[in-house]
């Protein structure tokens, strides 16, 4: 009993530090990649190739003055960054990052908690993420924050439905809600190591997942809640110092979480030849993150009504069709 608690605590600590470091270096990756796509060089002076830039940014943010404007609703204003940060981090509790291994005679599974309803747990956490944004907008005495929060909640509610439906196909084929089992089902059977990955069986589901995931995490081209040209900073306009950076970390943790879940569900998780499982998992998450940044540098922002129409009139029917098609296929093929 005590050993189990200790092992879990160590795993939680390792995953948490890995996620937070990855958040910091995602900002570096984003600045570098976008810069090179625009024929610039990006951060260059802090350390070799600007590699210490995230550290410098963190120190700068931590030493800034924490400004609280007049007329804020104090409790919710302080609660909002935490409410947006915590669910983002909690996603990683059920993501399998490696296969199990034996260490000092203990069998250690490569996941913090192998919940048999892992997929539902992830949806529960992503659906709680909207509270941080709504509360931030509501408690700040600013029209820009309010507009950002209203846009964001409408957007997240609309896209959450298609987001959920996009992976129902996998659940129908796999007949399970456990992420560990879904990864096990995608193990290689022949030299075509990606033959069993769900991206092969669910190509439309994968495209829907990526699109909805970008909208869920409020990233370009769906970043209406923080459209700089219209709303200053959107819901976090009135936040400064560490509270602002918590929103910032939460956004990147969400991106990483959605990327990790996508890699687990569609790209075979830690399955892959030659390299160790953890490395394969990290490569797949990195691919997702690169795609995020690539899309940001490529597409202009949607208009708000276009965004809503796209969500309800294109993505939602496609997701329903994908679910129905998969169900019919599974019944007819007699699996």
């Amino acid at each position: 009993m005590l050993e189990m608690i200790l092992i879990t605590a160590v795993k939680v600590f390792m995953v948490l530090s890995a996620v937070l470091t990855a958040c910091a270096y995602s900002t570096y990756l984003e600045r570098k990649v976008v810069a090179h796509m625009q024929h610039r060089v990006g951060p260059l002076y802090a350390g070799p190739y600007g590699l210490l830039q995230p550290l410098a940014d963190a120190v700068k943010l931590a030493f800034k003055e924490d400004l609280v404007p007049d007329n804020v609703e104090r409790v919710t204003y302080a609660l909002a960054p935490v409410a947006s940060f915590v669910p983002a981090i909690l996603i990683f509790a059920v993501v399998p990052f490696s296969n199990g291994f034996t260490w000092f005679g203990y069998d250690i599974p490569g996941v913090i908690s192998d919940l048999n309803i892992g997929v539902l747990y992830i949806f529960a956490m992503t659906s709680l993420g909207v509270y941080g944004i709504v509360l931030a907008g509501w408690s700040s005495p600013s029209k820009y924050s309010m507009m950002g929060a209203i846009r964001s909640s409408a957007q997240m509610i609309s896209y959450e439905i298609s987001y959920g439906l996009s992976i129902i196909g996998i659940l129908i084929i796999g007949n399970t809600l456990s992420l560990t089992e879904i990864v096990a089902q995608q193990a290689a059977e022949s030299w075509v190591f990606f033959g069993n990955w769900y991206i092969v069986k669910q190509p439309l589901g994968f495209l829907l997942y990526i699109t909805c995931a970008i909208a869920e995490t409020n990233r370009a081209p769906f970043d209406l809640p923080e459209a700089e040209s219209e709303l200053v900073g959107g819901y976090h306009t009135e936040y400064s110092s560490m509270r602002f950076s918590m929103f910032f970390i939460a956004e990147y943790a969400y991106m990483l979480g959605v990327a990790a879940v996508g890699a687990t569900l569609f790209l075979g998780g830690w399955n892959g030849p030659f390299l160790p499982p953890v490395i394969w998992f990290l490569i797949k998450v990195f691919l997702f993150m690169f795609l995020y940044i690539w899309l940001r540098a490529t597409f202009p922002r949607f208009r708000y009504d276009q965004l809503m129409q796209f969500g309800w009139k294109v993505l939602f029917p496609l997701a329903i069709a994908n679910t129905m098609g998969t169900a019919v296929w599974v019944v007819l093929s007699g699996q």
Partner: peptide
């Protein structure tokens, strides 16, 4: 999980949304 997804994640967000509007 359903309690969180449906009530906390969807219905109460709608409540909050109406209160904000």
């Amino acid at each position: 999980a359903i309690l969180i997804v449906v009530y906390a994640g969807a219905i109460l967000v709608l409540f909050l949304f109406v209160i904000m509007l």
